[in-house]
Design a protein around this nucleic acid. Structure first.
Lengths: 320, 320
DNA sequence: TACGAACGTGCAAACGGTTGCGTTAAGGTA
DNA sequence: TACCTTAACGCAACCGTTTGCACGTTCGTA
């Protein structure tokens, strides 16, 4: 069997409580004893059993991270940063995705709740009412969703989307489309509200729509028929799918239609034409969410976004 | 406090052991008692404490998944599938990445070992000797690495790489470059061995090299100066970085040089020119790794790869 | 009618740590 | 020298579940 605290105690000639304190409250044990215990523990290869520890303390040193879709390039940088932040404080991170299914959010939260000290829920699709139920069962940090009384990290996508639209207006576009995201997405609502009244710009809304490449592909015809010269898409993947679809229809980007994405993922950055996008600080968000969760600070943190102009936008065709 | 098995037992007028068995060995308890216990448990909102359970049983129902770099588009589909497979059997998945650092592999395995029933280690960078030490501490499944006596899921990248080279030869290329991957990568070694002697093809090896876009960018000049008309890159990200770098040097792909990637990630699929690549069944690998781990089957599973010809390859310039 | 089998349940000892409290010894003060 | 404080450690209960064992019923069979 594995070596326990008792084995170490016996090998040292001290009581188990002394060994325990050596690890969990070092200042309470004599310096000499401490080094002796540590040496023996090292020699025996002792590693504390976290299950046993969490049984008495009630804390697990684990965190849960729930995202909508692991395969969406938007999330991996967030997960990576969250994981690093957790590790830096001796926490481990459970990761799960919901496949964009609100019901799975609740299921996962319940499944995690007895096993973690807190949960980071990213881009939830559940209703506010459903979320309110969940957040009171365990410490929570929400990413890209605002909810009264809940610690939150949001990226200021409204501002970014507005800047993007102003960029299109500045290029001379007059009629543009907004391809909105999935139902239940707070981000999508924010974007929609933010771009409702950009001076000099007439906006048609297309969607709701799946936040994937297929989602973009599927509405290409609709966009092409909408009589617009510019598009702001819910995220980079949708933007790319849309460009692919437009391409098949013989519509060029940015020659015929300008397209802007949102999120700044690697896939958009490397795409050709290089995607003009509203870059979101996903890594910062992941790191901060975990840090907030661990320190149990309650706060509403807003991270800035910024427009990255690349090659998928240009003046509309008529202009010089 | 949370509701425990004792609360349920008391509310039902039965002993705790009966409640326990209702959940962990339902067939041992009378049908009527069982439904009564379940009803009360439901009403009280009882959820078993996994820490306590794992303390007695010695099992945690948790698995660890370690990858080299979460932000590399190669891994997310693997992680997603692994997570889904784990959830399907009521397991939870710890996810961590090593940032390509072999030392972190050992550190993470040790940190996980007391808290999981097994570990899936993907694309390890450690030496065989170091791995051999690790694998005997806990059930292991290795992905894309072969090691005597260890359950393994590998993708037949050797075959895929060879097919890729034959594709280049078939197009008329005579002198090509192999951009190899990071030191410690089993895959990189496989590729190198596999393409050493393709008939009619002279191969120069460039690298070792970081498995990132920057890695590809950094060796663009070297590739351009190597007098080759075709390149097989360690992965899609390197291929893309390389194409970007060649582009800056005024070298066209596939006009001047053909480039093939390896892995079939979304980033490569969406890139322009659409990347010719050796597609790897990463989702299958993730799913199988967890399933093998849970069933504790020992096996060496080989998954097929296949060449996906897209737009980044063409005949060399001289040819018609 | 008596007897073993089978079933359902209770009992209590683990599992590996943590922690409030009690004890001892050493050192400081009057 | 007597008394008090403090540091270091031992003691034992406890965290929530599981599980081998024992006990009491019920039932079928001889």
């Amino acid at each position: 069997m594995a070596v326990t605290i008792r084995d170490v105690a016996h090998a040292c000639g001290v009581h188990v409580s002394t060994v325990s304190r050596t690890f969990s409250a070092p200042h309470m044990v004599n310096a000499q004893t401490r080094t002796r215990v540590l040496a023996v523990a090292e020699r025996l290869g002792y590693r504390p059993n976290r299950a046993a520890r969490s049984l008495t303390t009630g804390r697990t040193n684990n965190l849960g991270l729930i995202v909508a879709d692991l395969a969406n390039p938007f999330f991996p940088p967030l997960i990576k940063a969250a994981q690093a932040a957790a590790r830096a404080q001796d926490y481990h991170l459970f990761v799960a995705d919901t496949d964009e299914d609100p019901a799975k959010e609740e299921e996962l939260v319940l499944a995690f709740s007895k096993q973690v000290d807190g949960i980071v829920l990213c881009s939830p699709r559940s209703s506010n009412k459903a979320l309110e139920k969940l957040v009171e069962t365990i410490p929570f940090v929400l990413v890209n969703r605002r909810l009264r009384g809940v610690t939150t990290v949001v990226m200021d996508v409204a501002r970014g989307a507005r800047t993007a639209m102003e960029h299109l207006a500045g290029l001379g576009h007059r009629r543009v489309a907004l391809v909105s995201g999935p139902a239940g997405s707070w981000t999508s609502g924010e974007i929609r509200r933010a771009v409702a009244d950009v001076p000099g710009l007439e906006t048609v809304v297309i969607g709701p729509n799946a936040p994937t490449e297929e989602g973009g592909l599927g509405i290409a015809a609709e966009v092409a028929a909408a009589g617009v010269t510019g598009v702001l898409a819910y995220n980079d993947l949708v933007a790319i799918g849309l460009i692919e679809g437009l391409d098949e229809l013989g519509v060029g980007v940015p020659g015929d239609i300008s397209v802007i994405g949102i999120d700044g993922s690697i896939t958009g950055r490397l795409y050709r034409p290089k995607l003009t996008t509203v870059a979101m600080p996903t890594a910062d968000a992941g790191r901060m969410a975990v840090d907030l969760l661990i320190t149990s600070m309650s706060a509403a943190t807003v991270l800035e976004t910024h427009l990255v102009v690349r090659e998928s936008t240009a003046p509309p065709k008529g202009l010089p």
